[in-house]
Nucleic acid binder design. Structure first.
Lengths: 138, 138
DNA sequence: ATCCTACAATGGACATTGTCTAAGTCAAGG
DNA sequence: CCTTGACTTAGACAATGTCCATTGTAGGAT
């Protein structure tokens, strides 16, 4: 299923081989790749694609709201195509494995008005950190 | 107010002019500087301090648990000396202003066992994003 | 079917952030 | 006040991201 591709096409996006490949790489619900990982996989399908194009395309997908930029990794941004359902992330502090998780309750409502300092809050990003079973066993 | 400095000294840290300056720059409860900002301010007090020393010193403070590394900014890591009281961050999407906030409830308990995938969770980082009053007015 | 044109892709330079190393310097105990 | 091991330094290097001038092309117009 190329949901992402379909949604992008539906928005009147000009479709090119490069954009198609990037969308294909990102397809799926539990993918959290860095820009360079996306580039590496894209090159496997379309050898002449340039790094700049991958960065541009990812940036555009984020602007369109079809892909989420996550900061679970303090080094590089990661791109998550699971934009249609709110979720948070659970990260292994040792190996970096990432899982999508769904906390009970809405974190947004946990912030009382007195703690909002007049901000108009639109979004919340939650990252749980711990050690995954594989790393704990090792 | 030089709590941070005192705590570090109490841990048997070898005290040097450079470490003192970095601690002074970080002093306070609502400071969220990037490594380069810390370096810039440190240079103002001690012109010959090197970038590597600032990075090393910040890293050591984080290891000692006296300073927290936060990923509110997707570009550079920020360093938060307010390590003694749990808190989260509220970030303006336009100007980047950062406030410490204290959500009601403990975000850790919001994650049901069924959503933990066997991970041993030790920490949670929450970043609220929105627009601050100044930026909303402009 | 072909042509136009605005938008997209390219690649390489540049910018930012962070890490490493070899050599020099210094805090603090003896 | 000497010694020593930890600390600092400068600068090279690495990783990630951005920019720009040039070239290519998707898709509507003819």
């Amino acid at each position: 299923m190329s949901d992402l591709l379909e949604r992008l096409r539906g928005r009147g996006w000009r479709m090119t081989a490069q954009r198609r490949v990037v969308a294909e790489v990102l397809d799926g619900d539990h993918v959290h790749l860095t820009a360079d990982e996306v580039h590496a996989r894209a090159v496997a399908k379309l050898p002449e694609i340039s790094r700049a194009t991958v960065y541009n395309t990812l940036g555009e997908m984020v602007s369109l709201g079809e892909v989420i930029e996550v900061a679970t990794d303090k080094r590089a941004k990661r791109y998550d195509p699971n934009a249609h359902r709110p979720h948070q992330h659970l990260v292994c502090a040792r190996c970096g494995a990432i899982r999508d998780v769904h906390p009970s309750g809405n974190p947004l409502t946990d912030l009382p008005d007195s703690e909002r300092f007049g901000f108009t809050i639109s979004d919340v990003e939650v990252t749980y950190r711990g050690v995954c079973p594989s790393c704990a066993a090792a």
